[in-house]
């Protein structure tokens, strides 16, 4: 009998093996995970509709989802127009936040002197409610798009700065020594190690930054603008058109989720290496506001 013949599998009639069963369960679980958010949203709307109907809640207190949908249909053009405005405002402010946040984060992360000097200032600045800054911006730039862009920028650069600085400042001392003993200049170390290392932190911060950027531009629009979804909601509420206010809120939420999803996609594409071997965990993020 040949020595290398593979042994016959022990015949069983117990159906699938344990490994197969586990794989099947895992697949079912993943499918459920993908559908769960949609099921929950749908469920929430159904319960909401039922509650409004059962208790006869007047429309100007809590409109039913069907009323909100009707209002969206009726006001589709102003909603679209103003959402577009808000989206643009947010993205421009966000773009500035990325450029400025990266630069300042690299500077603070690579120089302990700058870190000591600027960090308390940044914390102080981040603690100031941005809604209090908007009137000042209006005095400087007048009512319109500019204060909204600046507010989106001001509110969203902080998480980027903190995360990039953390990524760069926490390069392992041994690795730094290896490079310095090779005659590497500080710029070499930042380029070869600091920046790539900071990327997962940076992309993690983008998810936070983009959502708070929306908050920033909408705050500014509600206080001092004649355009944008925030302005539209203020107008609607002054006319007691509560369904339209809710329509605005829901559209804002959708925009936030979509931008967040895009940031996650970019993060996965660019810094997959940071997640390997530790799936499910994510890099620490800090929240600014």
């Amino acid at each position: 009998m040949p020595r290398d013949a593979t042994p016959e599998p022990i015949p069983t009639n117990r159906g699938p093996t344990r490994a197969e069963a586990m794989a099947l369960a895992a697949r079912r679980r993943r499918r459920l995970q993908a559908w769960l958010p949609w099921i929950i949203i749908l469920g929430t709307f159904l319960i909401w509709e039922a509650v409004v109907f059962a208790f006869q809640i007047p429309q100007f207190i809590l409109p039913a989802p069907s009323d909100i949908a009707a209002s969206m249909y009726k006001w589709w053009w102003p909603l679209l127009d103003n959402s577009w405005q808000t989206l643009m405002t947010t993205l421009i402010g966000f773009a500035f936040a990325i450029a400025f946040g990266l630069a300042l984060g690299v500077a603070i992360g690579s120089s302990s002197l700058l870190y000591a000097g600027l960090y308390p200032l940044l914390i102080a600045f981040n603690s100031v409610p941005k809604v209090a800054v908007v009137p000042i911006l209006v005095i400087w730039f007048g009512i319109g798009t500019v204060p909204a862009v600046i507010t989106a920028f001001l509110i969203s650069f902080f998480p980027i700065v903190v995360n990039v600085a953390t990524g760069i400042a926490t390069v392992e001392p041994e690795l730094r020594d290896v490079l310095r003993a090779l005659g590497a200049k500080p710029t070499d170390i930042i380029r070869k190690v600091g920046l790539p290392r900071a990327m997962p932190y940076f992309f993690a911060s983008l998810k936070i930054a983009i959502t708070v950027a929306f908050v920033g531009s909408i705050i500014a629009e509600t206080v001092a603008s004649n355009k944008g979804i925030g302005h539209l909601m203020i107008l609607a509420s002054s006319r007691f058109d509560v369904p339209l206010v809710f329509a605005g809120l829901i559209i804002t939420g959708i925009m936030g989720v979509v931008m967040y999803a895009i940031a996650v996609k970019i993060e996965d594409r660019t810094t997959g290496w940071a997640m390997r071997g530790q799936e499910g965990q994510s890099v620490a993020t800090s929240i600014g506001g």
């Binding site: 392992e172 290896v178 490079l179 070869k192």
Partner: peptide, 30 residues
Amino acid sequence: PLSSAGMAFQAPTLLPWRTILANVMLPLEV
């Protein structure tokens, strides 16, 4: 700091985003 000493420590301190080959070639870039 010297300009071309090779160093190794108790921890391997490889760069996780680079392949082994690219990690080994890091000093050549410096």
